[in-house]
Design a protein around this nucleic acid. Sequence first.
DNA 1: CATCATTGTGAATATATAATCACAATGGAG
DNA 2: CTCCATTGTGATTATATATTCACAATGATG
Lengths: 209, 209
Amino acid sequence: MADAKLDTQVRREQIAEAALSLVASQGLRRLSVAAVARRVGLVPSGIYRHFKNKDEILDAVLDRVELRLLANVQASRQAHADPLACLKDVVMRHIRFLREGKVISVPRMIFSEDTHGDHPERKRRILGVFSKYMEQIGEVVQLGQQQGRIRPELEVQAITMMLFGIIVPAGILWHLTDGGFDVTRHAQRGWKMLLSAIEPPVPSKTRKK
Amino acid sequence: MADAKLDTQVRREQIAEAALSLVASQGLRRLSVAAVARRVGLVPSGIYRHFKNKDEILDAVLDRVELRLLANVQASRQAHADPLACLKDVVMRHIRFLREGKVISVPRMIFSEDTHGDHPERKRRILGVFSKYMEQIGEVVQLGQQQGRIRPELEVQAITMMLFGIIVPAGILWHLTDGGFDVTRHAQRGWKMLLSAIEPPVPSKTRKK
DNA sequence: CATCATTGTGAATATATAATCACAATGGAG
DNA sequence: CTCCATTGTGATTATATATTCACAATGATG
């Protein structure tokens, strides 16, 4: 069935990518070893040549999700020197990837009990991913506060959570409506409202985004 | 094993309540017919005397969730004539129920593919529950706009989504940290920020909540 | 070419859980 | 009390999916 034998490094890559892709499009419930195998072009038992079990595959998927989430924040930071522009970009970038099916929304990972139903340590793992993500965003917020672009009296965590509160419902509605919900508009509106809450009353610059 | 035979109405009530309770504490993945039966005090096959299949049980759970969510909004509306106080109460009440395990956070229902994995109509059902919930909240927002308590230029949906954006991450973090996250503080901060975004610049009343 | 390690296949096994089936027990009606 | 409808039990079946196992095939090396 397989075209040829491939090195385990290559197969692992294929398998992890196939799994991530399947999860993004169909959710974790539908992720079966058989589905992954089909996608890669192997028979199901062939998967076990490269991954010890399904849990290992899920771990690999999680690694990828983490990389992508953090890469998103990094990309935004590099594209925008201005903290506010950067934060907005984090949101919009996430939305774009959501639309393109290139990222699994965090809640989807969290509440898919297939991910960590019987594995408390994976729950911790997810919490870790989330924490890192929030931390990265928090650094941008802090920068903004130091530069007078963001109200200094607001707590960093509160701001990052509000940002998260824009991203998450987007994923939820996108998922619920099978892509029918206008997540871009939602994000723009949400950002605008958040901005009015976090921007200092006296604009430190005439720039009004 | 059962103490006595009970009328199917009574059993259906018990079964639905047991299922809801189990879902709230353990998630949907762990909801098995056997677990529900144990909780009620029957053997697993006895459940099928009262519910056709597991799907019917899940539908009953969803009904209950809907009732509770909407009852929460109603309760807040009746307790507070002021729209802003009402909205705040919706959030805080939800948080309280979350803490007490009396409500399943909506994302948990949505992203638990056990709920609707193979049932598109149940996904629609959930979307319907969510839409009703948002509608009810939206009515309060509209009232607030008519009364000059909330900026009239902001779109109702944007505001309700921001409110949702406070509630949802609370559920997520509560779940991820096994109740370790301070959801009350999160909600209070989030509400405060949202308030500064939606409250008109010139207070129509000296009341500052 | 032969050898060998690694990868792939197809059949079989293991497991958890939903659901069926046939018999038992309960409780109400006559 | 008997009868009957309904509810409860315990054994069995069905099903989906993860995983193991034994053999086959590939590709690199000497």
